[in-house]
Design a protein around this nucleic acid. Structure first.
Length: 446
RNA sequence: GUGGUUGUAGCUCAGUUGGUUAGAGCACCAGAUUGUGGAUCUGGGGGUCGCGGGUUCAAGUCCCGUCAUCCACCCCA
């Protein structure tokens, strides 16, 4: 009698990570931590599960947030977080006395949304957020841009573009056109410019938002501002002259581009794009979106912006802030299609071949010696044929195999086989770690 | 949530107007090579044709449902 088997399967939008992509993901998380820390952001963590009312806020629309929601064992109405910002708002309100302001934190964690899936769009995905709260200063907005740039550059991207805009500029325009009461509809249509073009936006404005054709045309005229940031800003100056809100937005953008440039951010990586309107709900100032030049269809892989009041739902204390989030799984999907995911599925460069079963203690010992020298080392578990073990080493992507049998033990040496170059050298046991370090160090530069 | 696409071996796919033992390449295992990987040759193991139902003498092939996938909306990382 055989037991009925359970079909191994994962849920829609939930995915397993095999070693190669898992290592790539961990490597990016490591880079993100490093970059965030380099600017002084501190790590925090919060629970995956929250009270539903914390996540939804008052009058929140559950279907909007696509929550995974259920009643827990104590009858509580709970839900899994759909982003890291709302939990951070709760966190900030709850711990304000401990953290003080300004406060800079980063948070790398999975979030869950029950939406329909696509390439780069999953139901469980990792976000890498960083935020600065408790300050209105444009310096924080500028720093956010620098962090986004440094992060992508550190991951190894060269061809990407950060699109920047300011909601104050958009609000100024809406004021002038008398469309302030329909801002979300207008901005939503405007946000699609890159996707559906001018005609599409015009149609949506007239039909869905019920603007007049003249208003639609003026919005379009505005959205079609192109050129260098300096040129666009000059045009905005005249277009929004006399509108206090708009002028403030222009001033902040102007300062941002000036400082970013003098800080060494290449011009071709930052755009002033007045059509982006990201974050219809809570962004109030600078807005950021980041696109990969070679895979724009996957969407923004790092977005964020400035908000007036993070935690208004939880405290009467006003907490302005600015931040952004890297969409790690989306980025990995793009990197996979670029072939940027390394083939090696082992984090160790060295394999100790188990040549003779009765010499296990020697193999284990040399493994520990190499590890204590900072060299990741795996000792093969079975004393199978050497050929098999080398084949395994090759497949898994080991760089070196160290081999010793009776002849080597008698001579006090190890054979070090370079799997990439096919060369083999005999090295005295005492020199083994140093020799391997040299080989590996040389390998990095080539 | 709406509309559509695809689903055959671990992977990429072929399977003729429904017709008898469902194929290939790569991968895997064994051997040629009992102290040395990637090449070559020989042999081998693997498939409830996503899953469930229906039509039919007969279903991988047609129909319905379902699960997953990708695409377009929606929204977003």
């Amino acid at each position: 009698m055989t037991k009925p088997l359970i079909t191994p399967q994962t849920l829609k939008g939930f995915r397993d990570y095999l070693p190669a992509p898992a290592m790539a993901r961990e490597a990016i998380m490591e880079i993100a931590r490093k970059v965030y820390r380099s600017y002084g952001f501190s790590p925090i963590d919060t629970p995956a599960l929250e009270y539903t009312e914390v996540l939804l806020g008052k009058g929140g629309d559950e279907s909007d947030k696509q929550l995974f929601r259920f009643t827990d064992q104590g009858g509580r109405d709970v839900a899994m977080r759909f982003d890291l910002t709302v939990p951070f708002a709760r966190f900030a309100a709850q711990h304000l006395n401990d953290i003080g302001v300004p406060f800079k934190r980063y948070h790398l964690a999975p979030v869950w949304r029950g939406e329909n899936t696509q390439r780069g769009r999953y139901r469980e995905f990792m976000q890498c957020d960083f935020d600065t709260i408790g300050t209105d200063s444009n310096a924080a907005d500028i720093e956010t841009l620098l962090v986004i740039h440094d992060l992508l550059a550190a991951i190894g991207f060269e061809r990407f573009r950060i699109r920047v805009n300011n909601r104050l500029v958009l609000n100024g325009l809406l004021d002038k056109l008398g469309l302030a009461d329909r801002s979300s509809g207008v901005l939503r249509a405007l946000d699609k410019l890159h996707k559906i073009g001018r005609e599409g936006v015009t149609a949506e404005l007239c039909e869905k938002v019920a603007t007049t054709p003249e208003q639609a045309q003026q919005v379009l005229e505005f959205a079609h501002l192109t050129g260098t940031p300096a040129e666009v800003l000059a045009l905005l100056d005249t277009m929004l002259a006399g509108n206090a809100v708009g002028e403030q937005g222009i001033a902040r953008l102007r300062e941002l581009f000036t400082v970013a440039r003098s800080a060494g951010i290449p011009d071709d990586r930052v755009d002033l794009d007045v059509s982006i309107a990201r974050g219809l709900d809570y962004y109030t100032g600078t807005i950021y979106e980041t696109f990969l030049t070679d895979d724009p269809k996957i969407g923004s892989i790092c977005s964020g912006g400035r908000y007036d009041n993070l935690a208004g739902l939880f405290t009467s204390q006003k907490l302005p802030g600015v931040g952004a989030s890297l969409g790690l799984d989306r980025l990995l999907a793009a990197m996979e299609s670029f072939g940027m995911i390394a083939q090696a599925s082992t984090p160790a460069p060295v394999l100790v071949v188990s040549f003779q079963a009765d010499r296990l203690s020697d193999y284990v010992k040399i493994g520990r010696e190499l590890r204590s020298a900072g060299i990741n080392t795996e000792v093969f578990p079975d004393s199978r044929a050497v050929g098999k073990q080398l084949k395994y080493a090759d497949k898994k992507g080991f760089r070196l195999a160290v081999i010793a049998g009776e002849n080597e033990f008698a001579a006090g040496v190890w054979q070090v086989k370079d799997l990439k170059q096919g060369t083999q050298t005999s090295v005295a046991t005492a020199d083994l770690a140093r020799h391997i370090q040299e080989v590996l160090a040389a390998g990095i530069t080539t």
